[in-house]
Design a protein around this nucleic acid. Structure first.
Length: 548
RNA sequence: GCGCCCGUAGCUCAGUGGAUAGAGCGCUUGCCUCCGGAGCAAGAGGUCGCUGGUUCGAAUCCAGCCGGGCGCGCCA
């Protein structure tokens, strides 16, 4: 798309090339200054060129200002050299209004398809053991993984959302043992699963009391997986692929080896395995890991790590250009050996991204909420939704960077009041919807069609310029959130946008504004804001209500 | 001991090379005749953990320390 800021950036680049043949040491910035006295946009282009030209930055800025004035003409109402050599640009009302028209013309997909190099991305997240309900740690993982997947997809990537189901090995058997104990009316084993949900599943598995544990395990695990899927569904989280760990241990259709054996085969071909003490080892130390890792125990059993490698190889063979793993805070020790294993398979380590979600601490009115699993006090996703709702849950789990521990205050998150940012943003959206209702569908449609009647309008209010300026930033925000795997930036943006709309709403009458062309322009601005708020909220998985 | 993450306002946290460091909550003071007051305006509150370094310019990059969280198994 021909975004107004891209054109402005091009103008700066062209002006720079007039001044100097040499490329600037880095790409010039074009940003909205914090201080409104510094114009609408500021660029550091002159300071970057000054070094190569061996001239004072402010002199270069002066030349650049002249070149920009030439190329931008009337669109540029002021250009000033400031500070150490910044160029502050002030743009005309017409430039703002034309930019607004472009945003409106982009429709509801404004901000989409901004990725420079679209990729085929696999996002694996949650992947909680199907031996118990989804709890708080997984909830953050789910909110983040889902929102990241939405953001990447919106930005133009092809995204597969995947859940790795640990339906194989000792945990699955222990779970089945607990189910069987409950079916027999007995206490669960010492290291079993005591929750009430185990008894509920025991009722659903036919003849759970009498059949062999190995036989009921897959059925019990599948029932638990369905419960997890239902919880996540209620949270707005869906998966494209539920990948069975068990399938990696079975001979694949039309093949002679299981997935795990195939993984070993690939590793051996690359010469990175060896046998010692009766166990099969992977020489991960060749790739920077601090010690080698066991793949097959001396007992002949495969390790969990062997499954992980086979799974990574499986993803590779499905041609994902990028694999993102969203992992819990206790998994960072896993990064080194996983990257090493990936290289041992012949993969490029930079295409494998392991993102660590830091802890969530729950607080209720200043008091820490215990989440001790041992004491059976852990908070489940279902309970969280029950207490504060999906919208507040997702907002508070998403508005912070994934690599910082966060504190969620349940009392604040559940308060439907002014002190709660999530409602503030939703309120702005609802308010626009009500206002546009008041104008009437026909009037709004008319305003969206006629974009050439802007001549002769009064000067734009500062709040209008500010709001259009913010809307223009949206595609870059999406690109940044996608590239940096940082959906929390969208929450910050949404709050800022809602505040800017409130200021506009206060200062500028929309419905009933005279002349009609002014009303039209303000309706267009309101529609563009409403769409952008709706998109931002959708990316977060938060609803955008039309009334509250 | 080694590794990863974090340290920014009273609290919770944004801000990965730009100008006077921001938001929400909390606190103080104003504003409901005006498209929704779940709102708005103004104010108080900061050695950006510390010390060096790189740079025209550092909360941001580098090194070393200090503090906190988490992890370091032929467990899953």
């Amino acid at each position: 798309m021909d975004h107004p800021l891209d054109r402005l950036r091009d103008s700066v680049r062209e002006a720079a090339s007039v001044i100097s043949d040499a490329d600037p040491s880095s790409a010039p910035t074009l940003e909205r200054p914090k201080n409104p006295d510094h114009g609408d946009y500021a660029t550091n282009a002159a300071m970057l060129l000054a070094g190569g030209l061996r001239r004072p930055p402010r002199d270069v800025a002066g030349d650049l200002a002249g070149a920009l004035q030439q190329s931008l003409g009337d669109a540029l109402t002021a250009v000033d050299v400031a500070g150490p050599g910044f160029l502050n640009l002030t743009l005309s009302d017409d430039w703002y209004l034309e930019s607004l028209d472009q945003i409106v013309a982009a429709g509801e997909r404004y901000g989409a398809e901004v990725a420079l190099a679209p990729e085929n991305v696999n996002v694996e997240f949650v992947s909680a053991n199907p031996t118990g309900p989804v709890h708080m740690g997984h909830a953050r993982n789910a909110a983040f993984g889902d929102s990241l997947a939405r953001t990447l997809s919106f930005a133009g990537h092809t995204v597969t959302r995947e859940y790795y189901v640990n339906d194989f090995g000792t945990q699955a058997l222990k779970f089945a043992e607990s189910v069987q104990a409950r079916a027999r009316g007995e206490e669960v084993p010492e290291d079993g699963y005591p929750g009430d949900y185990v008894a509920a599943i025991a009722l659903q598995v036919p003849d759970a009391a009498s059949r062999p544990v190995a036989e009921i395990a897959p059925e019990a695990i599948e029932l638990m997986r369905e419960r997890i899927a239902a919880s996540l569904h209620a949270f707005g989280v869906e998966f494209d692929v539920w990948f069975s760990e068990r399938s990696l241990h079975e001979t694949r259709p039309g093949k002679e080896l299981s997935g795990v054996e195939h993984g070993f085969e690939v590793l051996e071909q690359h010469g990175h395995t060896y046998r010692t003490d009766g166990a099969l080892w992977l020489r991960t130390t060749d790739f920077g890991d601090d010690k080698d890792r066991v793949l097959e125990r001396s007992t002949g059993e495969h390790t969990y790590f062997a499954s992980d490698i086979a799974y990574a190889q499986h993803k590779r063979e499905r041609s994902f250009g990028r694999m993102i793993y969203v992992l819990g805070a206790d998994h960072h020790g896993y990064i080194g050996r996983m990257k090493a294993a990936y290289q041992a398979l012949g993969g490029q380590p930079e295409t494998l991204e392991l993102l660590i979600m830091q802890f969530v601490h729950l607080v209720r009115g200043g008091e820490k909420v215990s989440m001790s699993k041992r004491a059976g006090e852990f908070v489940t996703l279902d309970e969280l939704i029950e207490e504060i709702g999906v919208d507040a849950s997702r907002w508070y789990l998403l508005n912070r960077s994934h690599d910082t521990t966060i504190e969620v205050d349940l009392a604040l998150a559940s308060s439907e009041s002014a002190e709660n940012p999530v409602y503030y943003v939703q309120y702005a959206h609802a308010r626009i919807a009500r206002m546009l209702d008041k104008a009437g569908e026909a009037r709004v449609a008319e305003a969206l069609e006629s974009s050439d009647g802007d001549v002769g309008l009064p000067a734009l209010e500062p709040a209008e310029r500010r709001l259009i300026g913010l809307l223009l930033e949206f595609p870059a925000e999406i690109a940044e959130a996608a590239e940096r795997r940082a959906p929390h930036r969208i929450a910050s943006y949404a709050l800022t946008l809602a505040q800017a709309f409130s200021a506009f709403y206060r200062d500028c009458l929309v419905v009933g504004a005279e002349p009609p062309a002014l009303e039209s322009a303000r309706i267009r601005l309101s529609v563009a804001t409403q769409r952008t708020l709706a998109t931002a909220l959708w990316l977060l998985g938060v609803s955008a209500p039309t009334s509250m």
